[in-house]
Design a protein around this nucleic acid. Structure first.
Lengths: 191, 191
DNA sequence: CGTTAAGATGAGGTCCGGTTCCGCTTGGTG
DNA sequence: CACCAAGCGGAACCGGACCTCATCTTAACG
């Protein structure tokens, strides 16, 4: 059973996998999750067949990138755990940093906004993110700076709205995601 | 030139137009704007060709319904203009009523959320809505109950987020649009 | 009741985008 | 260097959704 010690992946294959991931990242950032597989292949300089050799389905590609993004968000939140000072500012800073990271990337906005495919996957990063956020929220509440009934889900909900506002803004709507966050975070503050 | 006084539209045609509009309304409410033309035709009890006779394109159908929805929202806001009492409560009440009207209708959420097609159209209703909202906001600010820098665009932004949160909620996410609105509106309140 | 043009129909055209598949290429190994 | 399986390419396939059109139906009017 455990004789799966096959010959390791060929070097060019490993390289192609990376190229595809990078190309997909760019394409999705520009065009959102409806970017086309053929476009991704072209950017990566490979044929569509190669993309499908590495990722059985377009959805798998999306999941891989979504997982990556959630890991990034988790890293931001975990870094905030180390910060000293006003607990509200630490929390809000983490949210702002997350938003800034995501805002320029259409697909990232869609993922945060709750795109069905992305919601399933990325459980590991999402859990790390939720864990760190819970702590940040707890501290801000303990300091009396955040409304006592706030939960991680509230933050998730706000970030869902954020994702779509940012996406709509990039699509040309006269919206402003920074303003959105300002208001929404104010709504989480203690009165 | 002005001899366009053709024979009036046939009675069955007028009836069919209404049936199509009603069917589309239901289908879109259930499945969102990606509901299929064939499904709409089936619900209306007509052939697809008939749908296309009345609406040159699916987009035209969406626009017609979007316009209707914005008129409804405008009516809600204008009704609020007549209300007496706490200016903040009047404003918030109008927003809550709008949200309640839209929340059960997937397409309505998508439209409010800033669906590209819908944004173009419906200019008349949107203007009425914006006008009434501006007055409501002004009154609440004059009473010192709303943050002084709030604008109609802020409300639009919040409602964009709302639309998507509500849509995501219907799609199964563990989100809660009522909680969302509670927080967002709190963010608009004067401190 | 006959005539006519508006209206209805729905099978099929067309386009689009994900996925497959088979013949060719190539890195790795003996 | 010879060999071969892993890997690659991209034309073809396929399903799904919007839309068209040639043919049939019927409301309206004299």
């Amino acid at each position: 059973m455990s004789s799966i010690a096959q010959r390791p992946q060929r070097a060019d294959a490993r390289r192609n996998r990376e190229k595809i991931l990078a190309a997909a990242s760019v394409a999705f950032a520009e065009s959102g999750l409806e970017a086309q597989v053929e476009d991704i292949a072209r950017r990566a300089g490979v044929g569509v067949g190669t993309v499908y050799r590495h990722f059985p389905t377009k959805e798998a590609l999306v999941e891989a990138l979504a997982a990556e993004h959630f890991e990034d968000l988790a890293a931001i939140a975990e870094a905030a755990l180390e910060e000293q000072g006003d607990a509200w500012e630490v929390f809000a800073g983490a949210v702002w940093r997350s938003a800034n990271a995501a805002a320029a990337d259409v697909a990232w906005c869609e993922i945060i906004g709750g795109h069905p495919t992305a919601v399933q996957a990325a459980s590991r990063g999402r859990q790390r993110l939720a864990g760190a956020m819970t702590t940040l929220i707890g501290r801000a509440q303990a300091a009396g700076l955040m409304r006592a009934d706030a939960t991680v889900d509230d933050v998730r909900t706000i970030m869902c709205g954020f994702g779509h506002v940012a996406a709509a803004q990039r699509a040309g709507g006269a919206l402003d995601w920074e303003r959105y966050l300002e208001i929404a975070l104010d709504g989480l503050r203690a009165r």
